[in-house]
Every structure is written in structure tokens, then in C-alpha cells.
Nucleic acid binder design. Structure first.
Length: 193
DNA sequence: TATTTGATTCTT
DNA sequence: AGAATCAAATAT
């Protein structure tokens, strides 16, 4: 069964939405071709008190979309080069969203929000797009349930400036993916650790 | 108007 | 460990 995730799905506590999005599918239609990606990693950004959340700086033109209804896309350009896809969660006036960090397309891991958006051809034109109407970009439940034990929790990435909030385990990732991808391939890594 | 910084990625 | 590269936010 394929089911487009409705607005009420996203209008719930952000951590609940984030964790349950792991194992769901992101569907993108480009010129009649359909691209389907299994979501394997997400991050939660929760409210104006969360210093890592863009909306913690207040309601600006950029963050305004996060104050709106759930199920709407928040897409922005980061580091001048890459786009990041988020979906707004919770009730209106409560600024929160879930960042989609990694997906799997045809068994291929697309790791990183910038790469994800490049693969799915998502840019700022999707900002404020409604992701619950099943048109060109949406989330789908394909009936495959993911057990709680299969979802690992980790600190969020690139938010060191957020103080105590940086330590929150608000990144969720499929453990099966962790096992299969690891850092075994050291071709390009060069042992930066 | 000028400066700083960042939900990143690729290269050295 | 650093470059690439730009929009939003902050300081002036």
C-alpha cells in the first residue's frame, strides 16, 4: 500500500515525526519520471528554544515558513552551494521541522542533505511547497514498519554553536545502514580522524 | 553598506 | 585541514 503522508502526520511532536520518518519514502517526479528514495537519516529541529533551530533567532523572512502549518517544505541554500530539504512539523506558531539527511535510491546511499537535494533536483523553488498533496514531491508510507531498535540516535551535525542543544540526540538513522556503509572505504577519507 | 557565519561537500 | 561560494542576519 502506498499512502501519501497527510498533514496530520506532520502535525505531531517533532521528535515523533522525525523518528517515524525513518523507513518512509521520499518521492519526486521529474518530467514524468519518478524517483523514490527510502529515508535513512533525519534530524529534528524543535522550537524557538532550540538554539540549533534557525527559528531560535526569531521569526524572519527566512524562518517564517517554520511558523506555519505542518507538511510544508522548508528549503534553503547552505554554504552558498547546497540545498537542504526540511518538512515543517507541529502546530502553527510552533517553529519546528525535520531535516532529511540521507536516503537510499535503488540501494544506493545518498548521504548528506546537499547530495540528497542534488540527486532529487530540489532547490529553493520548493520552499513553502505543500508536501501532502502528492504532486512532484511528497512523503510516502509503503507499509514497511521499522522497529524502534533499528533506529539509532545521534547528536546533530554541524551545530556546535548551539551549546547544550548540540548534545541532544535528535538525529535518527537506520542502524542497518550504519552497518553496511561504515567508514570501511578509505579511498577518499585519508584518515582525517 | 560591510562583515560574519553557516542544518555542507569535495579536495588536499 | 581548507576551499568553494552566497544568502541571511548582524553590526555600523
Amino acid at each position: 500500500m502506498r499512502r501519501v503522508l497527510p498533514r496530520i502526520y506532520f502535525n505531531r511532536p517533532t521528535l515523533t515525526v522525525a523518528r517515524s520518518l525513518v523507513g518512509k519514502y521520499l518521492v519526486r517526479v521529474i518530467d514524468g519520471r519518478t524517483l523514490v528514495g527510502k529515508i535513512v537519516e533525519v534530524e529534528a529541529y524543535v522550537g524557538s528554544e532550540d538554539k540549533a533551530c534557525h527559528a531560535s533567532k526569531g521569526r524572519t523572512q527566512r524562518t517564517d515558513v517554520m511558523f506555519g502549518p505542518a507538511g510544508i517544505a522548508y528549503v534553503y541554500l547552505i554554504y552558498g552551494m547546497y540545498h537542504c530539504l526540511n518538512v515543517v512539523t507541529e502546530r502553527e506558531e510552533f517553529p519546528s521541522a525535520v531535516l532529511i539527511r540521507a536516503i537510499e535510491i535503488d540501494g544506493k546511499l545518498i548521504d548528506g542533505p546537499g547530495r540528497l537535494c542534488r540527486a532529487m533536483q530540489i532547490d529553493r523553488s520548493f520552499n513553502r511547497a505543500d508536501l501532502t498533496i502528492g504532486e512532484s514531491l511528497w512523503f510516502e508510507d509503503r507499509g514497511v514498519s521499522v522497529k524502534k531498535e533499528e533506529v539509532g540516535t545521534h547528536p546533530r551535525i554541524g551545530v556546535d554553536y548551539a551549546g547544550e542543544w548540540a548534545a541532544k540526540l535528535w538525529r535518527f538513522r537506520l542502524r542497518t545502514v550504519t552497518a553496511s556503509t561504515g567508514t570501511c572505504h578509505t579511498k577518499k577519507q585519508g584518515g582525517a580522524g
